[in-house]
Design a protein around this nucleic acid. Structure first.
Lengths: 181, 181
DNA sequence: AAATGCATGTAACGCGTTACATGATTTT
DNA sequence: AAAATCATGTAACGCGTTACATGCATTT
């Protein structure tokens, strides 16, 4: 019964707040969760199908004119229970895979200059992230005031901000060191 | 020719400093890279085999008495070139998947109390990481003084320290917020 | 006229993990 | 006596991405 699959729980979590189609879910992930989560369509549709077959989701086909039909899914009681079960399970850390740090670790064998350049580009990306996350944070505080999910969204954004700031600080430590090697 | 596979480049990078067996590689990853990289045996051996077949590695079988044979691999010129090529390629960011943040984002639907508990446990793990990374950093500075890879290792450790500190700071922000909801 | 959005789905593939299999040696 | 270390490898499986297929409606 329990669902340990990561995609499954993401789908269940999104459907807990409102019924949605696969298409809706894809958009919601891109718009709201993209700084800490991602899913591909080729994974979403088959997973929704299986969750429905397993009785964790209901499915309603909404016919539209001039547009493809929408298959709208919603949580069943079993779906709610699976979601609750997941919350209580220990969060196992994902096996880490940071390719940039791998390059740094093997840096002695890198062609001269490329490593600093890699770190500079990384710094630029992460610095841009900070501004973006802060802007969304400020915007949400105003425009989503009173929304029951707001405090949770803000917490995830602050995680992104903290992580991006740490990344920039690390890059600022690192660039001069690499330049002097 | 070029190798975009992440496991392959990890193997090439490790073999760039010295020839090793699959077993050696597994240990080296666990001991030196574990805070930002991981590989499983079931992946290492087939990958080494393929890299050898593709001419990026040489293979030497060392017979031993009372112990299984060791297959020791080393970089060929083509292997060196593949490694160098990888350094210059842009580092594509891994699609993010932070399960804890997913739980937080859906926090409204969590059973009371479990979310704070999850964040507390996360904080504890990350706080322990800080101490561990700092200890290794200090130890390496002394005991690996003069090693040509030392500056690169220290840089990766400082990345770990920065990230862990940011994580702890975020948890310290977050826990009181969750307690008051 | 071309591109984007809406909407669903599948097939092929690559990646990587887990578990299994083997068996002597050394440490606890 | 039990467990860990040394050492290699495979088979099965699950996960997830990419690319493909379709086709109307709307926007540029």
């Amino acid at each position: 019964m329990s669902t340990s699959n990561r995609t499954d729980v993401a789908l269940l979590g999104l459907l807990a707040s409102e019924p949605r189609s696969g298409y809706d879910i894809k958009k919601a992930i891109e718009e709201q969760l993209s700084h800490f989560w991602s899913e591909s369509v080729g994974n979403i549709y088959p997973r929704l199908k299986r969750l429905h077959e397993r009785g964790l989701l209901t499915k309603e086909v909404h016919t539209q004119q001039g547009r493809p039909d929408r298959s709208v899914y919603a949580l069943t009681d079993a779906g709610h229970e699976a979601l609750r079960g997941w919350f209580s399970q220990p969060t196992r850390p994902t096996p880490p895979r940071q390719e940039l740090l791998l390059k740094v670790a093997f840096g002695r064998h890198a062609p001269p200059g490329v490593l600093v350049e890699q770190v500079r580009q990384y710094r630029a990306r992460r610095a841009a992230d900070i501004g973006q996350f802060e802007a969304i944070h400020a915007m949400l505080e105003q425009e989503a005031a009173g929304h029951p999910d707001l405090p949770y969204w803000l917490i995830t954004l602050r995680a992104g901000i903290r992580a991006a700031r740490a990344a920039v600080a690390w890059a600022d430590d690192t660039i001069p060191v690499l330049e002097d090697l």
